[in-house]
Design a protein around this nucleic acid. Sequence first.
DNA 1: TTGAAACCCTGAAGCAACTCCAGAGTCAAG
DNA 2: CTTGACTCTGGAGTTGCTTCAGGGTTTCAA
Lengths: 145, 145
Amino acid sequence: MKIGELSAATGCPIETIRYYEKEGLLPGAARSEGNYRIYNTSHRDRLTFIRRCRSLDMSLDEIHHLLLLQKTSGENCAGIDHVIEQHLSHVSERIRELQGLKRQLAELLAQCSAPGKTDDCGILKGLTGGSNEDKRGGHVPRTHR
Amino acid sequence: MKIGELSAATGCPIETIRYYEKEGLLPGAARSEGNYRIYNTSHRDRLTFIRRCRSLDMSLDEIHHLLLLQKTSGENCAGIDHVIEQHLSHVSERIRELQGLKRQLAELLAQCSAPGKTDDCGILKGLTGGSNEDKRGGHVPRTHR
DNA sequence: TTGAAACCCTGAAGCAACTCCAGAGTCAAG
DNA sequence: CTTGACTCTGGAGTTGCTTCAGGGTTTCAA
């Protein structure tokens, strides 16, 4: 199949397919006379795999790693298990961070509507470094993604 | 104060300070004879504000917007309230997405350890497009951050 | 057969929000 | 006067794509 058909079959945009090839995630395809890429079902399966991993928010590096393990470690599942576990802990970490943010944002909103008078916005005060307990030391490390 | 002092005072890296200036978030500083940037306390307050917003995971665009509102709408707090609310809903959305991912990853891990025999990894099967209900239609839109 | 539409190719640039680097100038202390 | 700490500018690198310019190829209908 040509790239457009692979794209239709997997839901992955054409440019992204070419990008994965350039990045070494997809092996280079055979070429037709007119220099068109020609794919087979194993390409399709691999692309499906990649897209599924991406939809789980794994980085291309993680996926790369997974593809290597898939090739080399014929039987033992441990390495793969480990990659997934690690990714899961990334995701959990990020959820915790975002829940912290959510709480802080809700507090800010409360500061705004709470006092009867709104001469100058409580939110702005909150943001400029006023009274919140953990204003320093914030700096969420932006772990991954 | 010079840029290094401002950096120390706010915890913001020097390069980032220059970057904010280039992006128009910080007004250009006065210059010394030797062409060093010279900052005052109002710069420091503004930078603190920006960093606090960033630590709440707002985009530079949102912060820009907020700074404009701060200048123009002397008294009414509504616009600012709105920006924060909208950002809060971004964050909530992202949390929901990540919780979905977390659930799927946990399922994958279960597939691995569940069967007594591990001839070929259940995780890999799960990832290559096998049996999970919502394998298509995934495509988390990566809303923002 | 021709010619227009639909498809494909490459390489480069753009996005966010920085970070890091090279190569050079400035300033304070010893 | 030299050393080292600090600062300057402009440009490239990061991630995972997307968009674009400027072409070639295939296919289908008139």
